[in-house]
């Protein structure tokens, strides 16, 4: 009986996938602080590919793809059409819980890292990120060449909130890599997911998640919190500030 259990255990160990590689990552900071002089920042990610004794040698070397996803928000993409001579928002699509920020960094062209099916399955790359749309009550991802989806991606890229950096990951040694995650000045505050994927020979070997937070601090935080939590008093204070500024100016510039 005992022998049988042992044999079973050995079999199970053999049947387990050969997940020999492990990813270890660390961020230069897990909190990006927004103070009044914030104009954007870079968060540096360091990582290494840990191997154990049984790891087979990978002929093609390792590939790393890092996906950073900002807080999700539901947005509407409008398309203007000419109606009775004027351009109006005629058609629209609602993207449900789309990332407000999305950056994909890789050590080489993503299409060379794995075949298209693997990339699709693992949602690797901007073009393969799921952007579910709400269509008459149902929620489904659109086709890749849907014009609304393409316009949404294009507008996000223009605003610097979506990026694909095909040489954003640098291998320092065959197992040690480094990447700089750009945080633009208009990045929304909140929690950002950092997802690191390890590929070799076109297959996903390992995956690791970590997180990053963007927060306002000091005066910025004080103002934002006051506006959110004590809206009425904040408004009264702002109105009072307006009156005071106006009065002060008329006193300062008084000529008689």
């Amino acid at each position: 009986m005992r022998a049988r259990t042992a044999a079973l255990g050995m079999l199970l160990a053999l049947a387990a996938p050969a997940q020999a590689e492990r990813l270890i990552t660390t961020l230069s900071t897990s909190r990006v602080l927004i103070s009044s002089n914030f104009t954007g920042a870079d968060v540096v990610l360091f990582g290494s590919v840990e191997r154990d004794a049984q790891t087979v040698a990978r002929r093609g070397g390792y590939d790393i793809v890092i996906t950073v996803t900002g807080p999700r928000e539901t947005v509407v993409t409008y398309r203007k059409e000419r109606v009775a001579g004027v351009w109006v928002n005629a058609d629209s699509r609602t993207f449900v819980k789309a990332p407000s920020y999305l950056t994909v960094l890789s050590n080489r062209t993503i299409n060379d890292i794995a075949d298209i099916n693997t990339l699709r399955r693992t949602q690797t790359g901007l073009a393969r990120t799921l952007l579910p749309q709400e269509i008459s009550g149902d929620i489904a991802d659109s086709t890749r060449d849907d014009p609304f989806r393409q316009a949404f991606l294009r507008l996000k890229i223009e605003r610097g909130l979506y990026r694909e950096i095909q040489n954003g990951v640098t291998f320092l040694t065959p197992a040690l890599y480094r990447a700089a995650i750009p945080i633009p000045d208009n990045a929304p505050t909140g929690s950002y997911e950092v997802d690191v994927k390890l590929f070799a020979d076109g297959a996903l070997l390992a995956r690791q998640q970590t997180a990053l937070e963007i927060v306002k601090v000091g005066f910025e935080q004080f103002v934002a919190a006051a506006a959110r939590e004590h809206g009425l008093f904040y408004g009264l204070a702002t109105a009072l500030m307006a009156l005071l500024t106006g009065w002060l100016a008329s006193v300062v510039f008084r000529k008689d």
Binding site: A227, Y234, G235, T238, G246, A249
Partner: peptide
């Protein structure tokens, strides 16, 4: 309107408003 906007939408940026005001009152004189 400032008070209503602040109380309902929480969208009044006091820092932006202050910079605009300072320029605005001098210009208005």
């Amino acid at each position: 309107a400032t008070v209503i906007h602040a109380a309902t939408n929480h969208l009044v940026d006091a820092v932006l408003a202050l910079i605009l005001m300072i320029g605005g009152v001098i210009g208005a004189q």
